[in-house]
Each structure stands twice: as structure tokens, then as C-alpha cells.
């Protein structure tokens, strides 16, 4: 049955009935590809093309100048670049895993367990969702300062762990998990945690993946928290370093390096997404969610 269904959804052979769909999808897909093409072509543009007027979208004579310049500048910095890479990787890993765990826990409880105040909690989360993140910057700093977390990794990790968007998305998906499945598990003697681990988590995989991507994005490109909570250069993250590189050196030379840095910062995003999407989207058709 499962195999039949899979072949039904993803046909191996090309069929004439697919032509009209592809005719609509393909041009739009080209537009969707524009920003990525732009990042790549921008990074390989030599100096004169970067400032050409009118600005050109595609690179005419690709060159590696920008990357050479970038690596030359990084090698002169006081802290080796490996340190920044390590910091970023560690912080990102902890935040993505932590925030997904926290959000799925909370979503499971808020959606499927009964206790007092759960609707209030959800309302609070929704209210926090609407709020502009910029405005809590200063109170957040004061709290981190009061807790003595300035100049630690925790200052980079803790503030972003509870992501309202993540919880909101995952909770809405958890609501769709049928209660009968969970009840069946309880009757078989499963504990709450077992139900969470064996039933809810596999069923909400797409939401988990989306949440993971969103939280990854938030941490990966985060310049603010490195700038405000950390004054020790060895604890700062890669995006902050890239940002300083391109703004310290004069702006004209910085442009090329910024383009190259942008590409370097973008590639992990791309890889993560491709890995996650192939894992997640294909399992969805077979889940028991109806």
C-alpha cells in the first residue's frame, strides 16, 4: 500500500498531463531563484562590475578577487577565524536543538494535556508573537546584565531559546494530531513522555523542520546579540566578524568582501534546508494524520 501510494504521488515517468502544470510553475520558479543567483553572481563580480552603473544582475567576467581579499583580511585579524566559526557552530547547534525541544514540549502540553492556565499561556505566546523584537532589546540587556551572563555563551543562547513563532507553528500542527491515536497509546500503557516521543513527534515532523529552519536563520545571521552582550572578542560569532570586516575597511573595498562573505554565510543555510526538506517532506505522505 505504502509503496503504491508513493509512486502515485511522485511519478517516476514524465507524463503529457504534467506539461500544463510545469508551464505555470517553471517561470515562477525562475523568479524564486533570482535572489540565490544574485548572491552567487554578486560574490564573483570584480571591482569594476560591482559599481557599474546601471547595476548589472549577472556577472560578466567572474573572478575570485573578493574571496582573496576576504581571506587576506581575515588572516590579519587578532583572533583566528576558526574561533569564530567554532563559536557560531556551537551557539547555533545548541539554539536549534534547544528551541525545537522546548517548543515541541510546550506545544504537546498546550495542545494535548489538560491543566489549568494553558489557554492563558497560549494567549501570552500569541501576544508576544505580535510584538516587535527591537523594542525588548534594552530590557533584555538589563536582565542579562543582572544575571551576570555578559561575556558568556549563555548570553547568545538563552534569549533566543523560547521562540514564539516556533511554538505557534508547532502547536497548530499538534492540534491536528488525532486524539484517538494518543488515547490508544495511553490505553496500551504509554507514559506522557512516550506519547510525545513516539506519536506526536513523528507526526509533526514537517512543523519541526520548519521551526528548526526558522530558529537556525535567527541565530545564524544574528549580529545584534554579539554586539550588545559580548565584549570579549574571542566569544563573538562569525556573522559579527564578517560584518566588522566589511565595515571597518573602507567601504569601497568592503563591498566586494561583503558580497563574498554573504555567499559564505549563505551556503550553510542552503545545505541545511536541502538536507531537512528531503528528509521531512517525503515522510509526510505516510503519516497517519488525516
Amino acid at each position: 500500500m505504502a509503496r503504491y501510494r508513493k509512486s502515485n504521488i511522485n511519478p517516476k515517468r514524465f507524463d503529457r498531463s504534467q506539461i500544463k502544470i510545469i508551464l505555470i510553475i517553471l517561470p515562477l520558479a525562475l523568479f524564486m531563484l533570482l535572489p540565490i543567483v544574485f548572491i552567487f553572481s554578486h560574490a564573483f563580480k570584480p571591482m569594476d562590475e560591482l559599481f557599474a552603473y546601471p547595476p548589472r544582475f549577472f556577472v560578466a567576467r567572474p573572478a575570485l578577487d573578493n574571496f582573496y581579499k576576504l581571506f587576506k583580511t581575515t588572516s590579519t585579524s587578532a583572533v583566528p577565524i576558526g574561533r569564530y566559526v567554532f563559536n557560531t557552530l556551537m551557539v547555533t547547534l545548541v539554539v536549534v536543538i534547544g528551541s525545537v525541544l522546548i517548543s515541541t514540549f510546550a506545544a504537546f502540553a498546550l495542545s494535548k494535556l489538560r491543566f489549568r492556565g494553558k489557554f492563558t499561556l497560549m494567549e501570552i505566546n500569541n501576544a508576544a508573537l505580535m510584538f516587535v523584537p527591537v523594542s525588548v532589546m534594552i530590557p533584555r540587556y538589563l536582565i542579562i546584565n543582572a544575571l551576570g551572563l555578559i561575556d558568556t555563551y549563555l548570553a547568545l543562547i538563552l534569549p533566543v531559546l523560547a521562540m514564539p513563532v516556533c511554538l505557534f507553528l508547532i502547536k497548530q500542527f499538534t492540534d491536528q494530531v488525532p486524539d484517538s491515536l494518543i488515547e490508544a497509546a495511553y490505553i496500551e500503557g504509554a507514559s506522557d513522555f512516550k506519547v510525545y516521543q513516539k506519536i506526536v513527534l513523528p507526526l509533526i515532523k514537517p512543523a519541526v523542520a520548519t521551526g528548526a529552519i526558522l530558529s537556525f536563520q535567527q541565530v545564524w545571521g544574528d549580529i545584534m546579540s554579539s554586539a550588545y552582550y559580548i565584549s570579549n572578542e574571542t566569544l563573538r560569532t562569525l556573522p559579527f566578524f564578517m560584518n566588522t570586516l566589511t565595515s571597518i575597511s573602507n567601504t569601497i573595498a568592503g563591498q566586494g568582501m561583503a558580497a563574498a562573505a554573504g555567499l559564505i554565510m549563505f551556503v550553510p543555510n542552503l545545505l541545511l534546508f536541502i538536507i531537512l526538506q528531503s528528509n521531512v517532506m517525503n515522510t509526510m505522505a505516510h503519516s497517519g494524520l488525516k
Binding site: 514540549f105 508576544a128 525588548v136 531559546l161 506522557d192
Partner: peptide
């Protein structure tokens, strides 16, 4: 189950 989220949200959000 909710407590980790409550703590995190309370400290850095609410």
C-alpha cells in the same frame, strides 16, 4: 512539559 518554555519566555520575553 511547559516549564522550560515558561522559564525562557518569562525571562527574556514577558
Amino acid at each position: 512539559f511547559v516549564s522550560p518554555w515558561i522559564i525562557g519566555a518569562l525571562m527574556f520575553l514577558i
